[in-house]
Amino acid sequence: MNASGKTLLTQRVKVSRGEIHIIEERCKQCRLCIELCPREVLQESEKVNEKGYHLPEVVEEPEKEKICVSCGICEVACPEYAIWVREKKEMHQGRGIYGKNSSNR
């Protein structure tokens, strides 16, 4: 809820977009980044690193709101320091940052 009493979900606000970086050799395929992403931006890929772990990849489907909004949960939860997000400069129109897995994790 915001100050006006309306939920943010119904508001049109400017949201940031993120750019996801992965250091491939660090990934151990724990899938936390995939499971914790509130926008379901990531999925397991066919690509494996030198140790044979399947790396995450980005599946941006703009119409389904599966767009990285640079919340950084994958970055802070990754046990391997293998994934991080950098905010893109330009801002995009979109719904509030609260998706289905809304959380303050």
């Binding site: 250091i23 050799e25 151990k28 724990c30 899938r31 990754c78 391997e80 320091y81």
Partner: peptide, 16 residues
Amino acid sequence: MPHIWCAGCGIGPTLY
């Protein structure tokens, strides 16, 4: 890096 901790271990995020 990579460290010795298993996939999904909570130590990494705690240190971060």
